[in-house]
Every structure is written in structure tokens, then in C-alpha cells.
Design a protein around this nucleic acid. Sequence first.
DNA 1: CAAGAGATCATCT
DNA 2: GATGATCTCTTGA
Length: 195
Amino acid sequence: MFDNSIIMRLNQQFYNQPTVKVAKALLGKFLVHKVNGKILVGKIIETEAYVGPKDLASHASRGKTKRTEIMFGEAGYWYVYLIYGMYYCLNIVTEHKNYPAAVLIRKVEPVSGLKEKIKTDGPGKLCRAFIIDKNLNGMSSFEKKSKLWIEDRGEIIKPDKIKKAPRVGVDYAGEYKNKLWRFKLSDEEIELIKR
DNA sequence: CAAGAGATCATCT
DNA sequence: GATGATCTCTTGA
């Protein structure tokens, strides 16, 4: 069988761009996870950018550690970590090597492969729904062998459909807490997706 | 409705 | 020993 998903899969070059640009460009793209013989698909509708060593909201602002070293690496690798003892968060590393940055996938709209009632409208919830855990930390998203990736199905999102907001849960981040580095599709646009 | 607290543990100090 | 890029449930108006 010919596998279309390989053609549409975003390549490493896509992620090796300014993080804010990548965060916006990911809206309207499709998160795909091949797991347990199933293919789970969701359309990305909200992201957050974590940019560079000075961003106090970013784990990388406290220097390179065993946990954050993946953020200092090359673009296009998954950064998955456990938060509050019970939830995983999914990020994709951006920009060049030795510059720590990543995009957090905050919300997706279920497309296929997911059970009816399961929610995907939050970082922890979507990881639960997509069966994402620490095993995926450090894996690449752009290689043919990877089971978790993001693909472009040719849809164009107009810039005026993207809303900006401060990031969630980062009150401790000083001046960085007010940065408008959270991006989401407008409510009207999300309604259209649900049809 | 909104606000508050509890769950629960890897990571860092 | 403290804390967090979250979520769910309970409480109370």
C-alpha cells in the first residue's frame, strides 16, 4: 500500500524556523499517532511558544539539565514531560541546535480514531487521548520510522483567523508571563471544523 | 456559574 | 523538601 502520510508529513526544515512562526503555522495541521494498530488523528487548534534561554516560562530558562536537553537539540524532536504528577505535555522542539525552544500542543479537535466522548481540549487531556507518554520523549517526528508526527493536508489558515493570548499557568514568569505567545483558531473557525 | 482544593511524582534545590 | 507549561471534582452562592 502506498502511504500518503509520508508525503504530507512535516519535515525537519519546517521546525527549524522561528518558534512563534512555527507555533502559528501548526494551527490547522494534523497530529497523527500510529499506536496499537490504530491511527489517531486530531486537528491542531491551539499552541504555545516557549522561546529561548531567557523565557522564564520555559523549563530551559534554568539552564540545560537532563530533562531539558532535548530542547537544546535539533528541531523536529518530541519533548514530552510529566506535570503535576499525573499529566503529560507534548511539545515539538524548534529552531537550531543549542537554542532551547519548543511549541506546546495545547488543543486539538478530534478527527478520527478517537472514541466519541474522549476530550482533547487541553495539553494533559490530549496526551491521554492520543496515548502519549514519556516513551516518546526524544523521538523524532520527521523520520519515516516515527509513529507520531504532524502532517499538512493542504489547508490554508488565514492570519486573521488566528487569535493571540498570554500563555496559561505561567504567572511566575515575570515580564514573560504577558507575552502573547499562545495561538488559537477563532471560535468560528473551530465550529466549521466540527461540521 | 465561579472558586478552591486535591491528586501525585519527576525534577531540581 | 518544594514545586509545577493540568484536570477534575466539590463547594457554595
